[in-house]
Design a protein around this nucleic acid. Structure first.
Lengths: 184, 184
DNA sequence: CCTCCATGTGTACGAGCGTACATAACGATC
DNA sequence: GATCGTTATGTACGCTCGTACACATGGAGG
């Protein structure tokens, strides 16, 4: 342990992570408007000063949180597409993805929509959504041509949103039917 | 002028309307987080007290503003669908709708996305989005069967969102192609 | 013309906000 | 074990916030 551990951190195992996780929880429950240094610090059970130490500003914290969220969802989707052996299996995976085993209606969805709203106004976050969209499209391109991938990506977005906001959401069978109409 | 004008308002031609319009402008520019009694009053050029007089709370004002927005968009879309003489014309109208002559990227879109985000957390606003979705679907049903209408409604949502958030948005021709793939 | 009361406004209060910054805590180095 | 500099925290400041509420104001009924 000479040169290798020279730069080891003192005694902060995962403060940054805890702060980001707490931020995401707050956004999911109260929206971006509910995020403040104090609410985050309370939720993460850390002192107030810790939030300004690890993130230079609130915007910085929000960007980190949204980046983590987008990366997480994109990673799971990529994994699903990579695991699908063929086109039919890929379609089935997409249907499952939409029907909500991943986007459990009241957490990930709110995070995604809040991200869209913030991204529409802040260039930094716009870059996050774009990277996410690109990864989704590329994952779909393992099974579909680029044009189709792009269109299906948009269709997924719309189906997820409508499913989440509707009191009468589409059943998994209806979702599958819609996909198969698009991908005969 | 006896009984009929007894209940006429004193000298407030359209204060409520001005407040709602100002609120929508602020949401479009700064998000729901930017809405406060003071920012709205300043934007509408009315005294602070006027905001609490016409709306019992901020949530009340936000609900009124989002309702106005949803009604407005739904109304325009209904009109477009009603005006389309046949199925082909309807598809063309939908394509134009998506390609942005209506949702000019940085105003109506932000409003819609902010509404989605708020609706995912507040039941009152959820009702607003549901009424909007129902009207859209019914408008589409002038030209398509209910199942198709529902699927196209979702597709529209996804295409609008992706167009708005992408630096490389789909061209009108690509949007048209996607629609025709779904509606051969 | 006077009175009255619904309609509309200005001010004030307590709370919470982002952020700066002086200071404490503590591992590494000698 | 003494020193030092990075890492981390508590406190304080100036500001904006939502909302309550006392007061102005001006048309309607006498």
């Amino acid at each position: 342990m000479e040169a290798s551990t020279r730069r080891a951190r003192r005694h902060d195992p995962d403060r940054r992570d805890k702060l980001i996780a707490a931020t995401l929880d707050i956004i999911a429950e109260h929206g971006v408007a509910g995020v403040s240094h104090r609410t985050v610090a309370r939720a993460a059970d850390v002192p107030l000063g810790s939030t300004t130490y690890h993130f230079t500003s609130l915007d910085d914290l929000l960007a980190a949180a949204f980046t983590r969220h987008a990366d997480s969802i994109a990673g799971v989707f990529e994994e699903r597409m990579r695991a699908a052996p063929d086109r039919a299996a890929a379609i089935e995976s997409v249907a499952e993805h939409i029907s909500g085993d991943l986007l459990d209606a009241n957490h990930d969805l709110v995070l995604s929509v809040e991200l869209y709203g913030a991204a529409a106004r802040k260039p930094v976050l716009r870059a996050v959504t774009q990277a996410w969209m690109r990864r989704s499209r590329e994952a779909l391109e393992h099974h579909f041509d680029p044009t189709t991938a792009r269109e299906v990506d948009a269709l997924i977005e719309g189906l997820v949103l409508h499913s989440a906001l509707s009191t009468d959401p589409m059943t998994p069978a209806q979702v599958r039917a819609a996909l198969h109409r698009f991908l005969p």
